[in-house]
């Protein structure tokens, strides 16, 4: 559990992400997003495909191409507004104090460069070490992420490594400059469970050693339970619920969170009772609708839900975007 007295590392205020649509209009992929991450804390962002969780992470790193869309709002990282800094300054932040690992370790490494060169590049760009020192540091990082025969792997190409190994290399690259914030976008989704267990353990160890904050983007609630201090649930580009991990998994408030948890087969349950799925499908972002975006799938919807999109009702550390909790002072 993160210490509550820790400093705020990242604070996002009223972030909107717009994409250009085919018909000349705009699609709002993320709407009015607020989040904070304290130093050394793990915040998990959960949601299904198309809910805006990956776009959020890309936008924090300013990796959305200018001609594709734009981001509004404040992204305060160590007090600096990343939405305003120059590209040059942004480059000195990326990979240095803030770095990212991606879902697909197969495609996120450059296939034509050796592993040693790819790790060395990060260190070269953000430090003034000599070539020999860079090599030494690269090998040290590879060893730290549990790669056997690190010296040899420096001279190998990504295709010679397995998926789990590549993800370790990605993590070594991301951690090479001991970032304050690591953004991990579905870091274990492409991996098998036994390899996933290895990688999650590694991330937790590195977090302890370097006191790195992690923004973990995932769809897997099991991974959330394992890793997170706090959890944010997204649906249709909005935060629908936020709470600490225990509260969220044990006493979920928003009907969508409840639905998600009921949809997952429970390993500890030996009865054969059927799952309780959420009816229908995730709505298309391009379709503009009134009311709560979850209205059509919600078992507890009433008339107000159809007319007006609820605001986030904040009760201390817990946020819920649902009319059911409108008049409750404390979310019990």
């Amino acid at each position: 559990m993160a210490n509550t007295e820790e400093k705020e590392l990242l604070k996002v205020e009223n972030m909107y992400i717009h994409f250009k649509a085919e018909n000349g209009g705009h699609i709002q992929a993320v709407k009015d997003l607020n989040l904070t991450i304290k130093e050394g804390e793990t915040l998990a962002v959960v949601g299904e495909s198309g809910c805006g969780k990956s776009v959020t992470s890309l936008s924090l790193m300013r990796l959305i191409p200018k001609n594709a869309g734009y981001t509004e709002g404040k992204i305060l990282f160590e007090g600096k507004d990343l939405n305003k800094v120059s590209e040059r300054e942004m480059r000195s932040i990326r990979g240095n104090t803030m770095s990212m690992i991606f879902q697909e370790p197969m495609t996120s490494l450059n296939p034509v460069h050796k592993i040693g060169k790819q790790i060395g590049e990060v260190i070269y760009l953000h430090s003034s070490l000599s070539q020999a020192e860079i090599k030494e540091k690269s090998i040290e990082m590879l060893k730290k992420v549990g790669i056997p025969r690190a010296e040899k792997i420096m001279d190998e190409y990504p295709h010679q490594l397995s998926g789990g190994m590549r993800q370790r290399v990605m993590i070594a690259m991301a951690m090479a400059c001991t970032p304050k914030l690591l953004i991990a976008d579905e870091p274990t989704t492409a991996l098998d469970v036994t390899i996933q267990a290895q990688i999650l353990e590694l991330m937790n160890e590195l977090k302890k050693d370097f006191h790195t904050a992690i923004l973990l983007i995932t769809h897997d609630l099991g991974v959330v339970a394992e890793m997170a201090d706090r959890v944010m649930v997204m649906y249709y580009g909005q935060i629908v619920e936020q709470a600490d991990v225990r509260t969220l998994l044990k006493k979920p408030k928003h009907p969508y969170t409840v639905g998600l948890l009921n949809s997952v087969p429970d390993m500890n349950d030996d009865s054969d009772k059927p799952l309780v799925p959420i009816v229908g499908n995730v709505p298309n972002l391009g379709v503009i609708q009134t009311g709560c975006p979850f209205y059509a799938r919600c078992p507890q919807a009433f008339q107000k839900c159809h007319l007006e999109n609820p605001p986030l009702f904040e009760r201390g550390e817990q946020w819920v975007r649902c009319w059911l909790y409108e008049n409750q002072e404390v979310i019990a």
């Binding site: 469970v193 036994t194 267990a197 290895q198 099991g222 339970a225 394992e226 044990k250 429970d266 390993m267």
Partner: peptide, 25 residues
């Protein structure tokens, strides 16, 4: 046994003894 212990549990309080397999397939 390793496969079963590798699956993350939905209960954050249930920290089970985990068998972490070494290496890859």
């Amino acid at each position: 046994q390793a496969l079963m212990s590798a699956i993350p549990s939905l209960d954050p309080d249930m920290k089970k003894e985990r068998i972490i397999l070494k290496g890859d397939v």
